[in-house]
Design a protein around this nucleic acid. Structure first.
Lengths: 235, 235
DNA sequence: CGTATGCTTGAGACGTATCAAGTTCGGTGG
DNA sequence: CCACCGAACTTGATACGTCTCAAGCATACG
């Protein structure tokens, strides 16, 4: 968590316009810029830790982040991901509860911090921002419900296929159809709630069936329609 | 869905003061009262159905409700419960998405309907109500995350014990320590994501171990500390 | 270059689902 | 009020998916 001098400015932040902050006034942007903190993280570092209190929200300027809970046996459960332009930590802030999950970087990342007072001020003064927060939260809640049903009802094979597609939607594919995020086999297992070995076996089956290609942590989606069928998605 | 003449009035609604509406002005209450609809449901009737659009929120005046999704094999997954004073349908309304889940009554119920325009009006004009909505949503999101981790990591036995405790917290115990909600074995199975037969077997084990007592759909919690241990809860 | 860490594969155990066959319960109509 | 019917519940036997454990292999790193 090294504090470098060249903190990014909100006014020049490339991810601002596709984020929840896209509709705030330039006056408010200036205010945030003055009050916000900014931190540089190496890959794998923890941004905040489950159980702690938050005093603001974190805005990801650069990098990819996993949000995860620790189960009763100490096993990590990945709840969701966040990337450039996303905010994290707002759930605990708004519910005034301790953090229900931890956040850690998946690559080198730059994360800004906006204190609670400022966030509440914007919520109160900017109906559009306010409504966006309501929208984000209720959208997340819908996603969570879908995950619950899948975990409860789908076999591991389907869950893995679905997770690969979800990762594709979140982080997109590069020109070679590789999912643009590098996760360990264990992290993949911690998304779908299974053992690392099961992920390994199923990935190589998917490869054998020409649904994907694997090169280390690079996963290439070569037959998305078939993968979708494998995932048994209703929508 | 019979429209009886004696619709309850918000001003005399016993559940209003423990609900999200506890802080709205009497002026606003009057306005809601005029515009709201009200329906009487028999046990087992569907209030709204997954995939449809909502045009308002539902406020439960009386009765218990299950909110559930249908999985890809047509199996019901219960996401959460609602009771007197709770609102439902707000997730889809605020995210402007189709309903992600269905709602059905668990007993005879009275449910009021407040149209979207009115809800949005209150959100905009009443910061306290607004903030309560943010709080409800973010709290729900935290609960959902916990459920995800449990489903992904805990064995069925622990999940069942935990669900019984959750039902206790939601619906409370009567003077005989019975959980004040009657669910079929299948519904219990649909909370924790297992087969009906597994629920039956585990319930009778819990009974044998003197953790609970069973009389039909009545479940009596006779040893809550032991049940908590069985649930392997970290908090 | 050695050592740690992640990845892979196989064999076996275990939890849970499924299927099949009763049994009980709750409601309905004679 | 009782007999009947279907639905819900229960129990047992069996099958299957997935986890666990163990061992070997690849890879990155100091």
């Amino acid at each position: 968590m090294k504090n470098k001098p060249e903190s990014p400015h909100c006014s020049t932040c490339g991810s601002r316009h596709k984020s929840v902050f896209c509709s705030i006034e330039s006056e408010e942007v200036k205010e945030i810029d003055n009050i916000k903190g900014c931190n540089f993280f190496d890959r794998g570092q923890v941004i905040f830790h489950e159980g702690n209190r938050v005093n603001g929200i974190y805005c990801i300027n650069k990098g990819k982040v996993k949000i995860y809970q620790t189960g009763s046996e100490g096993k990590e459960q990945i709840i969701r991901f966040a990337k450039e332009g996303d905010i994290i930590g707002y759930r605990a802030l708004l519910s005034e509860e301790p953090l229900s999950a931890s956040a850690a970087t998946l690559d080198d990342a730059v994360v800004c911090f906006i204190p609670k007072s400022q966030v509440l001020k914007i919520i109160q003064n900017n109906p559009s921002f306010n409504f966006k927060m309501l929208k984000i939260l209720s959208h997340e809640l819908g996603e969570a419900a879908r995950i619950i049903t899948d975990l409860a009802q789908k076999p591991v094979r389907e869950r893995l296929a679905e997770s690969l597609l979800l990762l594709k939607d979140t982080f997109e594919l590069d020109e070679d159809k590789n999912i643009q995020v590098k996760l360990s086999r264990e992290e993949l297992a911690n998304i779908i709630g299974t053992a690392t070995e099961s992920v390994i076996r199923l990935l190589s089956e998917f490869k054998k069936d020409k649904l994907i290609d694997i090169d280390g942590r690079n996963i290439k989606l070569i037959n998305i329609p078939a993968l979708t069928r494998e995932a048994n998605i209703i929508d």
